[in-house]
Nucleic acid binder design. Structure first.
Lengths: 144, 144
DNA sequence: CAGCATCCACCGGGATACTG
DNA sequence: CAGTATCCCGGTGGATGCTG
């Protein structure tokens, strides 16, 4: 945790990329780190983006196939999610001018690179899920 | 990325903790990995949790100090966020029965352990923020 | 100072219908 | 089949006022 601790400390005038942190100083709106956190979370933290990227990680898929894989996602949200991911360069869109139309979506290298840190988070979640659940039940049981 | 690739593949009957993944198989609601992803994201992905944990990573703080540090956060949301974090065992709450009341919040070991994977994500965000922004502008410029 | 309750604006996201 | 547009509901979160 030493490295983590070091990384968490930062004098706010340092360039962000060198010392990413969560805000040992004031986490104000003017703090660029907060902005980046917000940004990545709003991109990745929505209901579907991660699932879509996950599904696309291994193989390109067309729209309908994608919708079947990520089940529960609505037609509209799949479109919207794909637009956002494409806009950010995490997913590529290839349209074949045929009839009927065929469009293939694939994760870009950037999109696939996202998997690594995300897996870290997922790993954490998986590893500590039980402990969290336990704490949650304890809390709900004895709020006194 | 070889390890990542391996970790992303999973036959859905394997225990989750051993092979966390984003869903190379169907990302349905019955897929436990999806549930965990959703869970961790809804915990950590909200507007303030990460900022609060980040601020608490180094030192315990009382309510008002916390509110000053995480600036922009409303009174209500700070309370709410702290309650959730406390419930999940990520933050501890110590109340001193004095007048005026004093309450100190501190990150638990579990809470601090979250920093590690999160920093991975923040690092990714920081490292690729520019590329994303560029892609975004390119997309907005030439949607044709 | 810490915390709860109320009111309200906003937006994410589901269902659906229509176009190329 | 792929994509857009419209409608609508529910949750999130901000502002504010009241209590211990």
């Amino acid at each position: 945790m030493a490295t983590t601790d070091a990384a968490l400390r930062i004098t706010a005038d340092e360039p962000l990329v060198d010392h990413p942190h969560l805000g040992s100083s004031t986490c104000s709106t003017d703090n660029p780190a907060s902005a980046v956190i917000r940004d990545v979370l709003s991109r990745v933290g929505d209901k579907w983006s991660l699932l879509v990227i996950g599904v696309l990680h291994d193989e390109p898929l067309r729209f309908t196939a994608l919708q079947r894989k990520v089940d529960g996602i609505s037609h509209r949200m799949l479109t919207q999610t794909l637009r956002n991911l494409e806009r950010d360069g995490l997913v590529s869109r290839t349209s074949y001018p045929e009839i009927p139309p065929r469009v293939e979506y694939a994760a870009t290298p950037l999109g696939r690179s996202l998997s690594e840190p995300v897996l870290g988070l997922v790993g954490w979640a998986a590893a500590n899920h039980e402990e969290i659940m336990a704490s949650r039940e304890g809390y709900d049981g004895a709020p006194a």
